[in-house]
């Protein structure tokens, strides 16, 4: 029997992680699914209402508003955080002066408390005294100055920029680690062929860290669809629900209105949307892989 198929070892190796995970993550999730079919305020008796909560959510414009806002965050994260983090990782994976300092600085936003991030960025965005508007006025672009967080038109964009900034560091260190996996020999061989930096990055690095790229996109999608903390302290979903995302909507329904069943239904919907988007993302990656393989085969 081949090593790669030794079942007993596989079972033994996966069991501890699976056990803890099943009992303390999957079980409560299933419980939440169960609650989503109930009408329950946590105090009086539960009442089974079938799909009632789901129907209510899907017919509620406030829910769809939070869904739409959430899609902005997903898009900003996937197309903002991942490319910037990748570029940063590629740049700082070399021996340049001060690389260690820059790496630390790049990671810093991830560890700074959300309260501080919110306070400082609010000062940047403030209409009257904010750095951004002052800067725009100073360079003669005063007409572009906006009420960044107070105007429903701009609030979501402003919040997204802060979110991008906050989590670049997370993907940055994931990519940095992955880059250590690319064998130096491949680059050396390519250099002998006279390949440019660009070609090396595109033809060697990216394909080698593809798995990690996909994982990052998955993390990005799941993280953005659950995003809560920063928006909660920075705008509290306002003004007038302009930045209310699904997790905030769900939180308010669960703990202000004390509707555990409805809140659970919204959470299950969040889970379902995440699965759909992740499915799409992995399909996109798959087709790209096939294309690349085809190209390579043709050469």
């Amino acid at each position: 029997m081949h090593l790669l198929h030794r079942r007993r070892w596989i079972v033994l190796g996966l069991a501890p992680a699976l056990l803890v995970y099943l009992l303390f993550a999957v079980f409560p999730i299933l419980q939440s699914v169960y609650l989503s079919f109930m009408d329950w305020d946590g105090l009086t008796a539960m009442r089974f209402i079938g799909l009632g909560n789901y129907i209510e959510a899907l017919q509620n414009p406030t829910f769809w508003n939070s869904f739409k806002n959430n899609l902005y965050v997903v898009a900003a994260s996937v197309f903002g955080q991942v490319p910037i983090a990748l570029a940063l990782a590629l740049l700082l994976n070399r021996r340049i002066k001060g690389a260690k300092f820059f790496r630390t600085a790049g990671f810093l936003p991830v560890v700074i408390s959300t309260v501080i991030v919110s306070l400082t960025w609010s000062m940047v965005y403030n209409t009257e005294y904010g750095l951004l508007n002052r800067f725009l006025k100073a360079v003669g672009l005063g007409s572009l100055a906006q009420n960044w967080l107070g105007d429903p038109k701009w609030a979501m964009l402003s919040v997204c920029i802060t979110i991008i900034w906050q989590f670049i560091g997370l993907y940055f260190i994931i990519f940095l680690a992955a880059l250590q996996n690319v064998p130096q020999e491949l680059y050396e061989a390519a250099e002998l062929d006279g390949a440019s930096e660009w070609v090396k990055t595109w033809k060697i690095t990216i394909p080698m860290i593809k798995e990690t790229l996909l994982v990052s996109v998955i993390l990005c999608i799941s993280g953005s669809l659950r995003t809560f903390d920063l928006i909660y302290v920075m705008t509290n979903g306002g003004p007038a629900r302009a930045t209310e995302v699904m997790a905030i909507y769900m939180f308010n329904e669960t703990f202000s209105s004390t509707r555990y069943g409805y809140g659970s239904a919204v959470s299950v919907l969040i889970l379902a949307f995440s699965l759909m988007l992740i499915y799409v993302a992995s399909k996109v990656f798959e087709t790209k892989t096939i294309q690349e393989k085809g190209e390579r085969g043709a050469v």
């Binding site: 079980f27 409560p28 419980q31």
Partner: peptide, 27 residues
């Protein structure tokens, strides 16, 4: 390693990343 159900185990581990923490508090 290669084994049957590998994809399912991986997919199972995905679920824990997809649900907002506040929905987990009461359960």
């Amino acid at each position: 390693f290669e084994f049957r159900g590998k994809k399912w185990v991986s997919a199972l581990f995905l679920f824990g990343m997809l649900i907002p923490v506040h929905a987990m508090l009461v359960p």
